[in-house]
Design a protein around this nucleic acid. Structure first.
Lengths: 227, 227
DNA sequence: GTCTATAGGCTGATAGAC
DNA sequence: GTCTATCAGCCTATAGAC
């Protein structure tokens, strides 16, 4: 079988596989499954295009392998997070940090992969991505439900909370390149916020937005400026 | 010229154009530009595929026409919103309502179109979508800045506010079908929230999250349950 | 304006030498 | 495992009849 290695991994084949996974990720993230071509991926990986068929059984096989490894890693990170201690506020913050690290460092482009799959749900969507997404929803749900139980959060819907928070994050990181692109053309207004900036903003928004006590409608006077 | 009509619009050609625009939107939204085929679009529109070239000058021409009309309408709605009166809170709420109406009724699929473009920024991205996005950012910026000036909002960054809010909205509506799909397979946890539900949630999150007075860290006792 | 027929390019995949 | 050569299929676009 091509996809499961028979020889020790200390061979050129390992390099080939990983080069294809890396180049494939880049192309699939930017152009989607249909938009990417195996020739371009192979060229970018510096290997012959026939090797995509040999190692992964075809274009779709490469794509599935990429989704698998990517979301497997995300899920592992979530598992560790769910077991760690702290207040619900801290856990939510740590989840946002994890998302950023994955999106910017460990698995660049994973938000775009996720979004593309969710927008064009084929058969594979449910089987492949579904369980991983469900795990993500579940972590948020546990945190939010605990926050509510401990009277730290308002009685919000955990699923809607997940959608608003993770949706905002996925959108931001999936469209970072687009903003850069616009920036170069001078077509985008204002600054080009970094991932860290956005994550800090999101933490503030969520923690204030979820907090129990409602602020008074009329502000008395100017106080506590957010730095 | 094919794209600008010379004859009165009371002809079959008008029907053909609109059938192609409608079918094209569906296909482009679901499969992206590369993933959609003109043959399928023409079949779905019930017209001959050569007419795509006649009326729009080709596949790309049809796509551009779709982006143009879609985002033109969004922008018009925003213009009206910006001129209407009310508190910053009301304006933000009305903007979210407008987004939902556009995404679910007037221009189904527009969030997906926006996302796909933003994820794969080509040359046309800046020229075509850029100005429309800039207009969107600008409306949020004006509202948020007024809210801050009037001491109703915290001193938040308007651009980050826009990204979190509109990003969450775009994500939600672009992935609605995906959730339905998962729901059928039983792979998605929990309910399947409607657009209206999500918009109401987002209003609450933003207004609480942006509000001036910070809630105390320790809740005194259980009060004011959010309905 | 609409349709049929067809051209021409590109894509993913495979057979077979090394 | 890697590479070259090649194929069949699909896709967009066009020419020309009506």
């Amino acid at each position: 079988m091509p996809t499961t290695r028979t020889h020790p991994a200390t061979q050129r084949s390992e390099h080939t596989r990983e080069a294809l996974l890396r180049a494939g990720t880049l192309r699939f993230v930017e152009h989607g499954f249909e938009g990417a071509s195996v020739e371009q991926i192979a060229r970018e990986a510096g290997v012959n295009k026939a090797l995509i068929n040999y190692h992964f059984g075809g274009k779709r096989g490469l794509y599935v392998a990429i989704l698998d490894t990517t979301f497997g890693e995300i899920r592992e990170g979530l598992r560790a997070l769910a077991q760690s201690g702290g207040t619900p506020e801290q856990l939510l913050g740590r989840m946002l940090d994890l998302f950023r690290v994955m999106a910017e460092e460990r698995r660049p482009g994973f938000p775009a992969l996720m979004l593309r799959e969710a927008m064009a749900p084929g058969e594979r969507f449910g089987r492949l991505i579904g369980p991983h997404l469900a795990a993500m929803v579940n972590v948020v749900r546990l945190i939010v439900e605990r926050g509510i139980r401990e009277k730290r959060f308002r009685k919000v819907d955990p699923l809607l909370t997940h959608l608003a928070m993770i949706g905002g994050m996925a959108f931001f990181f999936a469209t970072q390149k687009g903003r850069e692109h616009l920036a170069v053309q001078g077509a985008f207004p204002g600054r080009f916020p970094t991932g860290e900036e956005f994550v800090e903003y999101m933490k503030g928004l969520m923690l204030n937005g979820l907090a129990v006590e409602r602020p008074p409608r009329r502000p008395r006077s100017e106080r506590s400026r957010a730095k």
